[in-house]
Every structure is written in structure tokens, then in C-alpha cells.
Design a protein around this nucleic acid. Sequence first.
DNA 1: CGCAGGAGGACAAAGATACTCCTGAAATCT
DNA 2: AGATTTCAGGAGTATCTTTGTCCTCCTGCG
Lengths: 140, 140
Amino acid sequence: MIPKTAEYALRAVVILARAPGRPLSADALAESTQVPRRYAHKVLQALVRAGLVGSHSGPGGGYTLLRSPEDVSILDVVSAIEPIPRIRRCPLGLKGHTSLCPLHRQLDDAAAQTEKAFAQVTLAQLLNQSHSVPPLCEVK
Amino acid sequence: MIPKTAEYALRAVVILARAPGRPLSADALAESTQVPRRYAHKVLQALVRAGLVGSHSGPGGGYTLLRSPEDVSILDVVSAIEPIPRIRRCPLGLKGHTSLCPLHRQLDDAAAQTEKAFAQVTLAQLLNQSHSVPPLCEVK
DNA sequence: CGCAGGAGGACAAAGATACTCCTGAAATCT
DNA sequence: AGATTTCAGGAGTATCTTTGTCCTCCTGCG
């Protein structure tokens, strides 16, 4: 559904949101998110480029969430990694009306729907639902 | 969003639905759906295995839609190629509650949403919307 | 200064997906 | 039967994503 990389990014950001202020190293994040060590680096770098998280070298350094959890939606994170592909023109390249044909309209509507669903959920909301199950299933 | 192969399958099935009774060859379908010739064949074979379309060799043969357009949903076609991946257990493999954590609950909800959207639209509906734009954008 | 903990970038291997080619088999027509 | 049309299936290629390895550079601390 969404690329693995986006999943990984979401996990990382959730973990970061739970450790406000305190920087977490890529290796630490890789462990708690169960993402392959070196791949975690890559994912985090993408998040840095997108301006969602900040990085700092040296002892005591690591990654931190730059924006407040209320201001970060699932869509923000997913889009930072890879935007949800929308269908704007006819993929067949057929010239025609400005609007999509029924098939591609449906496909794009589905994309729009998930985009909207992702835009409506913030990190803060994910954390606040902890009364049921904590953010990343870490229940013994 | 959905794999390219699924897109191709949808195009093929739409074209087939517009040519009731009359079999269409893989090459003909490849052309009108703008799918690479050889690859179209592979996609069609998958649809045959799924029982959605039937095939017939020899001159005048080709592929035909087996079920009536009212009985085939977008989901049927997509699932024949590759089912929409649902999240049933915690992907981290962490043992815990029976329910998903908030993050994965959201992700799976989105999947469920598109699954539902795809299940509600039939081929017949796509064809009937032709008053606006014909099924595959073929407007000059 | 020098060291250790950290990020960052350049490859390369493994896997999945998309695509091609080649050869065989079935059905139809003459 | 033989030729032609069209499906069936497997092997091979290309490309992308995911993952792994190595080396460099930055930064805080003693």
C-alpha cells in the first residue's frame, strides 16, 4: 500500500515524538523501530531533507523532531518519503477532455481518500490513543 | 498506489466489457490498452487463472469476459492480480494485544477504505458513466 | 589536540517488479 | 494433413527498491 520506506519513517517519527527534546541516534532508532540499521540512516536523512526532523553530530547528538506532534500528520511523513501518486492526466496519453475517464477517476478518488485520511491524523493523536494500545505495539 | 500490473488488468477488463461476446486477441488488447505487447499476455493469463476472463485459441479466438460487467468490481480485478495488503498483526512482530497499535490501525484503516471503494464500483458502472467521458479517455 | 560518538555519502548485493524473447500447443480453415 | 492464428509457459533482461559495507567528515569532551 505505502512503500516500506514510508512505514519505517512513520515508526521513526513516532518514536521521536515519544522522546521530546532528547536526541536519538540512528542506531537507537533502528533498534526500536526494527528497521535495518543502515537503511534507517537513509530514511532519517530523507526526513531531515524534508525538514521534519533535525540532526546533530557528535556525542549526545542524533535526530530530533523539529515540529510539535500536533503539527505533523501522517501525510506529512509519508509525503516526505514519497508522495501519494495522484492521477492528473490520462495515463494512456490519449488526448481528450480535461477530466479523467471513469476508471482513472475512481483510482484517483481512492488515492485522494487515503490522502485525506492520512492528513487528518497527527502524531499527537497517535500518542494520545495510548490508553488503548501504546503507539508501536510495545506491550509485553 | 496500485501496482502497474493491476492498472493494466483494469484497462484490459474495461475494454473486454465494451466488446461483449466478441473475443479480443492479446495483441489487440495490448494496443488499445497501451500495454507492452508481451506483458499484456502475462497480465491476461493472470486474469484467466483468476477465472475472470476466458481464453480461446485459434483463429477468431482471444479473451472474453466470463462474468457480466455488473458482477465484476474493481476490487475483483485488482485482487486477481495482487490483493491489497492488509495489516493484521503488528509488523514489528512484537507480542501484545490482539488489536493493532494506533499507527498501524490508521494504516490498515486506509487500506480498508480503498478496498471498500474498489468493491463498490463495478465495470458496468464505469461503462455507464460514458455520458461524461468514455471509459478509457478515448476522446478525439 | 586527540579521541569517541555520531551523521552522511558512495558504492555493491539481494529481491521484487516490469518487461522481452523463444518455443510449444491448441483450434480453425482450407 | 498442413498452414495460420492465437494462447501458454518458461527463461532471460532491465530497473527499482531494500539492505549491507566501507570510508569520510563533523562535533563535543577530556
